[in-house]
Simulated assay, not measured.
Amino acid sequence: MEQITLGNVSITRVKEYFGSVEITPDAFFPESSKEVWEAGKEWLAPDFLEPETNIVYSAIQTWLLHSEGKTILVDTGVGNHKERPYAPVWGHHESDFLANLARAGVQPEDVDIVINTHLHIDHVGWNTYLHDRQWVPTFPNATYLMPKDDFDFWNPENGHKSVFGRGNQNVFEDSVTPIVQAGQTQLWENSHQIDANLRLDLAPGHTPGSSVLTLTSGTDRAVFVGDMLHSPVQILEPDANSCFCESPAEARATRRKVLGWAADNNALVIPAHLGGHGATEVVREGSTFAIKGWAPFTPYTEQR
């Protein structure tokens, strides 16, 4: 685990998985150029690319925040024991995520707020866990904040078609519906102010309800961007979407808007899936962007 403090908010990185996601750059990012991957092999490996196999590497992680006395989780990863017939890399996953969270000083009952930046398979998994053959909320005292646009899009009753095909099958039923049934869901639209430091805003494109969490505390700024970025290559080529983006034009516009704000405000960009340093500062470079520096996370130490 690693941590950083920005203003009055502490951030701890709690990892669930790091490694291959069994997809090549040209398949994952079909709009990216081969040249940028070739030119970047030295610095992309080993955190973002395995050059010998040409497979993208990715992290599954949760960002643990402490702000104004609240314990907040940003995204909940893949989860254990889930049936994922069309996403086998995440099916019947087994990880020590809850033990890692405990090492960060947090038990499930301590969590006040869970933020799902969107409702993809690898962002809601630990919303629930298997107890007596039933899926129940992992965090019994938490309010789960979910964007309404994504809730409506992924609700099987609404019959929406996705570029993901059936890749998100079972996710709503085992990781969203039990939260609704427990009365712990809060759906929000457009924007939602959590406290004086944290605000959620819609950032559509990857999914209809994809959102970003902006941190503003003292002179520090950060933005948790979910799947707006899967790879630092998308900073260098902001028009390169992932193959999982539902609305390509919106995804490109959102990425440019958020990266522009981050560059202009010296804000740390914190995606959901970056390995290595996990987050970065960016600068404008002509009509695109460049990496200014990686996040100065330090090894986690218990807060006393």
Rank of each mutant, 00 (worst) to 15 (best):
N265T: 12
G278A: 08
C245Q: 02
A251H: 08
A263Y: 06
A251W: 02
A263I: 07
C245E: 10
R284L: 05
H273P: 00
I270V: 15
V269K: 09
P248N: 13
S287K: 14
P271D: 06
R284A: 09
L268I: 08
F289N: 05
A251P: 00
T288F: 02
T288Q: 11
K257R: 15
D264G: 02
A249G: 02
G276V: 09
L268Y: 05
A240Q: 07
L274S: 08
A290K: 14
G276R: 11
R256H: 12
H273T: 13
V283P: 00
A272F: 05
A249R: 13
I270M: 14
A251L: 01
V269N: 03
A262N: 01
K257W: 04
K257T: 13
A267D: 03
A253E: 13
G276H: 08
L274Y: 15
A267F: 04
E285C: 11
A249P: 00
S287E: 14
G260V: 05
N266Q: 14
F244E: 09
E281P: 00
A290Q: 10
N265L: 08
N265Y: 09
A272D: 03
L259W: 07
I291R: 06
A253T: 13
A240R: 10
P248F: 11
K257L: 09
H273N: 13
N266L: 07
G278N: 02
R256F: 07
N266A: 13
A249V: 10
E281S: 12
V258D: 04
V283I: 12
A240M: 07
F244Q: 10
E285W: 04
V269S: 09
H273Y: 07
E250L: 15
A240T: 02
E250I: 00
D264V: 06
A251N: 12
G286M: 07
H273A: 12
E246M: 11
A272T: 05
E246P: 01
G278M: 08
L274K: 02
R252A: 12
R284W: 03
N265H: 15
P271H: 06
N266I: 00
C245W: 08
V258H: 07
A279W: 04
S242Y: 03
P248D: 13
N265S: 09
S247K: 14
N266H: 14
E285A: 15
A267S: 08
N266F: 01
E285V: 04
P271Q: 06
D264E: 14
